[in-house]
Design a protein around this nucleic acid. Structure first.
Lengths: 227, 227
DNA sequence: TAGATTGTTAATCGATTAACAATC
DNA sequence: TAGATTGTTAATCGATTAACAATC
């Protein structure tokens, strides 16, 4: 599997200092998806031009983005798909398992629990929480439903670092605070409110209404999609 | 309601030409949410400094973003919340109703159907589609479930311009194509694959695995959230 | 009026692209 | 070797911030 380990003649090289721009990191996820696709189709190498074209980026941008994290390419050849894939997974932190806590077992919670994409990416919902006493103690999709008050216990038990909020807007801030005090480090928020957490806690949110609103703007203004 | 109509002494003013940067438009949605919040709390005016602070932007950025679309502020006063709110709604196109088609009635589809945020924003799912014959003809949350083959008919009937894809990855491209040929102009895609549509069709997608992946990167790299 | 705050221009900063020597 | 393609530097482009006259 490991195969071709290579030695680099050391060019005078210094990795850029400081945190990488957010835009670079979000493109990394797209590179990863495209590499998965290429690998499934048995393509062994890919050039920055090709990879860029597939995603609507310039070749220079692809090379620059990757160069942010190291030298992964082979002049004259391109990038080896398997190898680059593994490198990006390592960079993103998804080369290891991420146990996840899910709070809220309404339709959205159930949908997230059944979401196929997670397993592939090594995110695993290992504990579900809901305030509804009738749900507590049951098993859903192979995962036990707990009382939210047991968050701290289960976070410790399973080494959970990420949490997903899938409760109504009214309770989102509450849940966020419980997550923080339970020791969770990153929160993905699906409720339609902004939540406030200490700056050391990372936060991402998906607001369905905002997504649609952006679309409606594009439609009324006749904007065209790139690609 | 209309209240204070004002006359502008015309400064030499020209609205910036060309489409506004995507980043500006996405901040517009955030301004809108914050204005809703301020209005609920009976605040009548807000300064660019205050609005920016609440969202983690500079005062200059707020003014510049808004100036992209017109002169909405009052020197010495700030912005009138109600008025600015109405203006941004108009700009975003959400001052009118947007009938929406939802394809896919699994857990995610059901969750989207029950999503409260939509109504508030004047997005209304007026027709649901699912390939499962057992679901066709039923009513869910007050909306009839149709055969996907009836998309063109219902799109015309209800003047639907936006569609939401909530089907498994395998069928997403198929559904996208059906939507396009039915005349839908904007697609919000929740499936974990990139879909390909003609450039005149606007597209946005929400990929849960990517969101979590971005979080895991931030966690392993000790990045901090702004705000 | 004095104080506050806008809209806008100029200055700064950061991100993308072009170009090319180094390399396979 | 000749052709392809990288990593990196310099040039360009665009977005953010600072500053301030105009205005209420």
């Amino acid at each position: 599997m490991a195969g071709s380990q290579r030695k680099r003649t050391s060019r005078a090289t210094e990795l850029p200092t400081g945190p990488p721009p957010k835009a670079v990191v979000s493109r990394l996820s797209l590179y990863l998806r495209e590499l998965q696709h290429l690998i499934r189709n048995d393509q062994t190498t890919v050039s920055s031009t090709d990879l860029g074209q597939r995603l609507g980026f310039s070749d220079a941008q692809v090379r620059k983005d990757l160069a942010y994290f190291g030298q992964f390419g082979y002049p004259g050849i391109g990038y080896r798909c398997q190898e680059l894939h593994a490198q990006i997974k390592r960079i993103m932190g998804t080369d290891r398992d991420w146990p996840v806590a899910l709070v809220g077992l309404g339709n959205l919670g159930r949908a997230l629990l059944g979401y196929k994409g997670f397993g592939l990416q090594r995110f695993q919902v290992v504990a579900v929480f809901d305030a509804d006493a009738r749900k507590i103690g049951r098993m859903v999709a192979g995962v036990a439903v707990h009382d939210p008050r047991d968050l701290p216990k289960l976070v410790k038990q399973h080494d959970i670092r990420l949490g997903i909020i899938a409760v109504p807007a009214e309770s989102a801030q509450d849940v966020a605070e419980q997550m923080v005090s339970a020791g969770i480090e990153g929160i993905l928020n699906f409720a339609a409110v902004r939540i406030t957490v200490p700056p050391r806690i990372r936060q991402a949110s998906v607001d369905l209404a905002i997504e649609l609103e952006q679309l409606s703007f594009a439609v009324v203004n006749g904007l065209r999609n790139p690609t």
